[in-house]
Amino acid sequence: MLRHAVQRLAMAVPVMFGVLLVGFLLMQVVPTDPATVRAGPTATPDVIAAIRADLGLDRPLYEQFGLYLWRLLQGDLGVSIINNVPVTQELGATIGPTLELMVASLFWSIPLGIALGTIAAYWRGSLLDRAITALTVAGGSIPVFFLGLVLIWYVGFKWQLLPFTGRTGPLWTWEGVQGIILPALTLGGVFVGPVARMTRTAVLDVLGADHVRTARAKGLTERRVVTRHGLRNALIPVVTLIGLQIGFLLGGAVVTETVFSWPGVGRLAVGAILSSDFPMAQGTIIVLSMGFIVINLCVDLLYAALDPRIRHA
């Protein structure tokens, strides 16, 4: 298990390097010159040249990349063109809310999806199964922003049940919890369907397996047969498939944060891109990509934890 973890970690390193390289090159292709922007509209060419030298922009590309990595290691991603705040500082302030939102979304949607999928599989062909399938197909085809807007309009605005205007406090307070409900419903809502459908397929597959018949022949209760010998085995493919949806989760987070003015990395990214704040945009892209890698790593480890055949390979 430990060897597997180290292996996976080692494989993630080149991917991270690639992400940083792409992030760096992205800055090279944008048409705006950072030194000019930094210097301001009234600066003389001398001043711009001085800033250019100061930023290392006059050196060859590979040196710039080295410098960029060196600064990154020290936590320096440059400063915002718009308000001169260090990028890392802004990122530090927004990562927390984004993590909160993701955890809160997955916290309810994955268990619900797995439960619905298992129920549908166990009573396959029944009315219940068909109802769940219809619901999950419908739910899966609703765009994130639309679900968010509907929730805002009805639950937040018309019925005034819950706040919908961003983060209302830390999660350990009641205000904070209320504030995250609608965004978490929105982002998680689009996840229930896919997870339920994957689980249904996987559980159906497993319930027909020989070892499930063995479990019944031992005299186990149906509940135990389904959970310990059906669902438990089905989790292996389900986790893999959930892993494949990570990009979807990050994209959904960007949309949800924007719709709900949630002060996270996603909204920061959208704002930075719209205002041509390139250092900031670059920083958010790096963070989101790193998030992608880290979640993938977690999925991999979870996969190994679930499947002894991988653990011992």
């Binding site: 020989d210 070892h211 063995t214 022949a217 031992k218 005299g219 679930l306 499947d307 002894p308």
Partner: peptide
């Protein structure tokens, strides 16, 4: 009937490779 299964009457199957659950010891 559950008490009978595995209690008074037990059963083994043809495929030892697949009749045990791979994820439990």
């Amino acid at each position: 009937m559950r008490q009978v299964r595995g209690g008074k009457v037990a059963m083994i199957f043809q495929e030892p490779m697949t009749s045990l659950n791979p994820v439990h010891s």
